[in-house]
């Protein structure tokens, strides 16, 4: 597969989606998906960090000595995460409070280092930037999907707005972490099912 914008987009959103195909970034996907707002801010933060760390690391790729490349990757990623953290604290203090330690934990998100290792190391800066950005979007879309279902069933709200007009018993399990395990598993199951069916069709032809 080539590296045109379109294939990079398709690959990160579906074919190699970080969460449901590569099973990366599960930690935060379990932690922040009981509220859509938290998932959105987390996703946007991750998009920014993956995009710019991929851009920077790709621009430096000719100069980074191989034996210390992971140290450099971590350093660059950490720098961007701290910038995001400072920015949110200065401009969105309420959300910073709600997310607590999770913004800092973007550093440990495997997706960012995964993109740096798998893509930015071997490709030019601009396409690496978009690869990082699309990986972040792929992550955000899945998180929002999971969060939407968990928030509706668990709290009876969407983006914090009550949907009281439909009366039902709230599913406490959706609020606690096991709910996230079930939801992620169902998402992976569906994605694998569709993908396998496509492969079979291709083989039949």
């Amino acid at each position: 597969m080539g590296n045109s914008l379109k294939t990079v987009f398709y690959r990160n959103l579906w074919g190699e989606n970080p969460v449901i195909r590569q099973i990366l970034g599960i930690c935060s996907a379990l932690a922040v998906t009981n509220r859509t707002v938290n998932s959105l801010v987390m996703g946007v933060g991750l998009m920014f960090v993956t995009a710019f760390s991929s851009l920077t690391l790709s621009a430096l790729r000719e100069h980074i000595p191989d034996r210390i490349r992971m140290i450099v990757q971590t350093l660059v990623i950490a720098a961007y995460v701290i910038i995001v953290d400072i920015f949110i604290k200065a401009n969105l203090p309420e959300i910073s409070k709600a997310l607590g330690p999770y913004v800092g934990l973007i550093i440990t998100n495997c997706i960012i280092m995964g993109r740096a290792e798998a893509f930015a190391r071997k490709n030019p800066p601009v396409i690496s930037f978009f690869d990082g950005l699309f990986a972040g979007i792929g992550y955000t879309v899945i998180l929002l999907g999971i969060a939407l279902i968990r928030e509706i069933l668990g709290f009876g709200t969407i983006f914090g707005f009550s949907i009281n007009f439909i009366d039902f018993t709230k599913w406490t399990i959706m609020v606690v972490p096991p709910g996230a395990f079930f939801m992620i598993a169902i998402f992976i199951w569906i994605a694998s099912g569709i993908q396998n069916r496509r492969l079979k069709k291709k083989e039949a032809k």
Binding site: A31, N34, N38, L99, G100
Partner: peptide
Amino acid sequence: EQNETPGLGGRIE
């Protein structure tokens, strides 16, 4: 100031 789990313990806010 609190560092409780967002969406769970964080709901003390």
